[in-house]
Design a protein around this nucleic acid. Structure first.
Length: 885
RNA sequence: GGGUGGUUAGCUCAGCUGGUUAGAGUACUUGCUUGACAUGCAAGGGGUCGUUGGUUCGAGCCCAAUACUACCCACCA
């Protein structure tokens, strides 16, 4: 028996790891430079080494795996490059946190020892997420796995830094930057999350130096008063014309500060007077530059007031706020406090309120670099899917600021800049040490590291060997599709686009496929704090990776968020089970010595031709859906085909041929059952790789590949195009559905088989019913049938159902309840009347007939004829039954 | 303040360039130990497609306005 050794149900926990390691051992995931094939390349967004696989990763990697498996089957040399990201801030924070538990600080350990710990961490946890990705079924070329801090990537980072520096695109300067007092580092604009917070507006008075009164102003951050070095008004503001240039005495501090005029001030907002704190506000910093104001930093790294203000020294900024407000009030400087909501910048890693702060940092000049990257999208060299996300991209890129790339962290790429403490000379070099070219003394390397995204920006080419001029680079670059979430466009996509254009003269990919967020069943973001996250690994353990992938892809459209529900996992698991059972049934009915070489295609029956035509349509439609990245749509079409067409109809119909060992078309049925299921498995494989492989291997298929993974993607088979047969078959199916419907409504027990009479004037239809007798018997509990051209001799108590081209009568004898049947017929008549009225209305509309395309008019006419015929049939029936009463 | 998406059955979502009686899954009701599968099979009920106008022979789809909702961007002290 072919079913020997085949388990009762598919067990993902057993099959998935076995198949995965087999695929890996056989090298199916690998890709190499191969001039005989077209390249297709995807680089994986490298997950953080600190990370654990979450639903976002699961979705992102499932989509990539679908894409890469599809392309591989389509005959491309398909490379999926995996790797991990060092994630400087996140990783360093975790290590520092762990050290804190041991009572240690970074400084206690020193840089070298700290980095040793960090590398240990990487060794311990960096592999964890990789193993988790494998559980998903990801078919990456693991032999090419990379890490953003490995030798090659580090080389690339240095090269880029030096190149930019030499071109004047990287500079070092004192600017106001976003400082995280918790992570103790600068962060870039992109790393700041703004959130609306309830705050207050403190109205203050600053007295004039000459004792002639005071100006009134309002602030949301009274503690920054300590660093005020001016007060600004708008030069056009008539109210304050006379005070420009006068001096004020800063309350609590006693510093003399000028009133300056600057267009930045909005006349209509507040009192029209703004206190200027250049060291702690980006706008004030700009004002300060224009008016040559002193920049006074009043806070330490961890946002405490400095020793310069003894009364508040050591206080946290929010503590200091309270103290200062109290002192202002006592000093009579506080006029009033009103509630006020405002946008507060927070650190995207730790959520701490950002402190804008003047500091010496490294920057990349972005404006020029952004231009070719913008151009690449404008000209369509790179396109976003869905298209609307290019607006998002342009929005960011066209208004881009210089990128602060230095971080006061140890874990990362140390900036390759060296300083001479003697003469102040700066050297930027790849060497590990430098000697001052001016005074010959050893130089000190900048202690800071680079923003993580600086190295990830190079990912599409650093992973292919750059800066070396490798064969891989020539063959696989530019890569093809980048798959990532919309939340990562500014962080990563934009920077890769910039880097690719700058260093490779080509944007790094032709398509950016954007997906949305995976939310919980109530539509909320999955987050640790809410505790509403679903662990993909638990889902895999319970229901298998195929079920998880099914759940993630079902109903997923590019760029859209989706809800994740247990239902979908169950559907996936049920579907696997359905496939498995279909396979078992097929094999159960295939002898060991089948000779498919003896199959005679001229013996294909109506249902054979129907399923083949359906299959052809599926191949062409699903393929084009996949090409368009509509994976959700493609999957549902494939599922519908397998479940409805193949299982619910074709298998059921085929049963009579299989069970009758003498049936002349039995071999053809066996052949097609295997073939059609096999092709369906191939199309389903990118979505559900494991169960499809297992089923494919068990089926009886000629010229079968060793693995479904490396089989050829199915194409439309021209000799199996049977549109007419498909139409005929649907007529039969309609009739079957009608019979079932009536039996169910009349409450006829399934065990009670009925002899039916088909009335039709059309000989083709009549013979179709006769030929389909066997499956009418099976599918509609029919015990036999007659055909005739008119209604003569049909007992009045027969129940009729009408279909296009005729009627089917089911004589049910005394089982029939005439009143009930009349009621049913009346309802049907009413429905038909409505439709006829609608169609008549359309066709009698002059405008419609003269303007609508002929095709549409003809369709309406056909409908009209059909409905009229059916209507007449129903009327006759009613008359007959009434007669009987 | 600017921008983007969503609003279709109780729930989750499809609906391609406007053209059958607006679909699916789930939930619900009913009937089935039908020789693969109860993780299943069959039948059924359920929607004025957010609102209001407009274009058109014809609008869930296109246009305008509006409401609600989610998100992104922005220096208003």
């Amino acid at each position: 028996m072919r079913t020997d050794g085949i388990s009762k149900s598919f067990d993902p926990n057993e099959a998935e790891p076995r198949l995965y390691s087999e695929w890996m051992n056989k090298g199916y995931f690998g890709a190499k430079v191969n001039p005989d094939k077209k390249p297709f390349c995807v680089v994986m967004p490298p997950p953080n080494i600190t990370g654990q696989l979450h639903m976002g990763h699961a979705l992102d990697n499932t989509l990539q795996d679908i894409l890469i498996r599809y392309k591989r089957m389509k005959g491309f040399e398909a490379l999926w490059v995996p790797g991990t990201d060092h994630a400087s801030i996140a990783t360093e924070a975790k290590i520092v946190e762990k050290m804190r538990e041991e009572g240690l600080t970074k400084e206690d350990l020193g840089r070298e020892k700290f980095l040793e710990r960090a590398w240990d961490w990487k060794k311990q946890y960096g592999g964890r997420i990789v193993e988790q990705l494998k559980k998903l079924g990801s078919s990456c070329d693991w032999s090419r796995e990379r890490f953003t801090m490995d030798e090659g990537c580090s080389e690339a980072v240095k090269d880029v830094f030096i190149k930019y520096y030499d071109q004047g695109l990287i500079y070092r300067g004192e600017r106001i930057i976003n400082w995280c007092p918790h992570c103790l580092t600068s962060i870039s604009n992109a790393e700041v999350d703004y959130e609306d917070q309830a705050g207050a507006f403190w109205h203050l008075r600053y007295p004039f130096e000459d004792g002639t009164g005071y100006v009134e102003l309002a602030t949301t951050r009274p503690e920054t008063l300590l660093g005020d070095t001016a007060v600004a008004v708008n030069p056009k503001d008539e109210r304050y014309k006379d005070i420009i240039g006068k001096n004020l005495i800063l309350p609590l501090v006693g510093r003399k500060i000028p009133v300056v005029a600057d267009n930045y001030v909005d006349i209509d907002f507040g009192t029209g007077v703004v206190k200027i704190t250049p060291a702690h506000d980006p706008n004030d910093f700009e004002v300060g530059l224009r008016h040559n104001l002193e920049v006074i930093n009043v806070m330490t790294d961890d946002a405490k007031i400095t020793e310069d203000y003894p009364k508040y020294a050591g206080m946290d900024r929010f503590e200091a706020r309270k103290a200062i407000v109290k002192d202002l009030e006592e000093g009579g400087y506080l006029i009033k406090v009103e509630p006020h909501n405002h946008n507060v910048g927070t650190c995207y890693r730790c959520g701490t309120t950002i402190e804008p702060r003047v500091s010496l940092q490294w920057f990349v000049k972005m404006e020029e670099l952004a231009k070719p990257a913008i151009e690449a999208v404008k000209t369509g060299k790179t396109k976003f899917v869905p298209e609307r996300f290019d607006k998002n991209y342009f929005n960011w890129m066209e208004d881009i600021r210089d990128w602060c790339i230095s971080r006061q962290l140890w874990w990362g790429h140390q900036i390759p800049a060296f300083y001479c403490d003697d003469c102040g000379e700066i050297v930027v070099t790849k060497e590990n040490s430098a000697v001052c070219p001016k005074c010959g003394k050893p130089m000190r390397q900048d202690p800071d590291t680079l923003d993580t995204w600086f190295s990830s920006a190079l990912w599409p080419f650093s992973t292919l060997g750059w800066p070396k001029d490798t064969e891989e680079l020539k063959y696989f670059y530019p890569t093809n599709t980048l798959v990532t979430g919309y939340d990562i466009i500014t962080f990563w996509v934009s920077r890769m686009m910039v880097a690719g254009c700058a260093h490779m003269n080509q944007p790094p990919f032709d398509t950016v496929l954007i997906h949305g967020l995976v939310r919980d069943s109530q539509g909320r973001k999955m987050s640790k704090s809410l505790g509403n996250g679903i662990d993909p690994l638990e889902v895999i353990a319970e229901s298998g990776a195929d079920a998880l992938r099914f759940a993630l892809v079902t109903g997923n459209a590019p760029g859209n968020d989706q809800r994740f529900q247990q239902d979908k996992i169950d559907m996936g698991r049920n579907f696997s089970n359905k496939i498995w059972n279909a396979m078992k049934f097929v094999l159960m009915n295939c002898e060991d010595d089948l000779e498919f070489s003896k199959v005679d295609e001229s013996k294909f029956t109506l249902e054979d031709k129907w399923i083949l035509n359906k299959l052809n349509n599926l191949i062409s439609e699903a393929s084009s859906n996949i090409e368009n990245y509509d994976y959700g749509v493609a999957l549902s079409k494939i599922v519908d085909f397998i479940w409805e067409c193949y299982c619910d109809w074709y298998i059921e119909i085929a049963k009579s041929r299989l069970f009758d060992k003498e049936c002349p078309t039995r071999l053809e049925a066996q052949y097609l059952l295997n073939k059609v299921l096999g092709i369906s498995m191939q199309m389903l494989h990118p979505f559900m790789p494991f169960v499809t492989e297992e089923v494919y291997r068990n089926l009886v298929i000629d010229d079968k590949s060793d693995s479904i993974m490396i089989s050829d993607w199915p194409t439309v088979i021209d000799r199996y195009k049977f549109d007419d047969e498909e139409k005929m078959m649907s007529t039969l199916m309609d009739a079957i559905r009608s019979i079932r419907n009536i039996r169910s409504e009349m409450g006829v027990a399934p065990s009670r088989k009925a002899h039916i009479i088909v009335v039709t004037e059309n000989d083709n239809i009549a013979s179709m019913f006769v030929n389909g007798k066997a499956f009418l018997e099976r599918l509609a509990s029919v015990s036999g049938l007659d055909t005739q051209k008119d209604k003569s001799g049909i007992p009045a108590t027969a129940v009729a159902c009408v279909f296009a081209g005729g009627e089917v009568y089911i004589p049910l004898g005394d089982l029939i309840d005439i009143d009930k049947e009349l009621e049913r017929l009346a309802k049907e008549k009413e429905n038909l009347q409505k439709e006829i009225d609608r169609v008549n209305g359309k066709l009698s509309n002059e405008a419609f007939v003269s303007k609508a395309p002929e095709k549409v008019i003809n369709a309406e006419k056909e409908k009209q004829a059909k409905y009229l015929e059916m209507f007449k049939g129903v009327e006759d029936r009613i008359a007959m039954l009434k007669n009987e009463q």
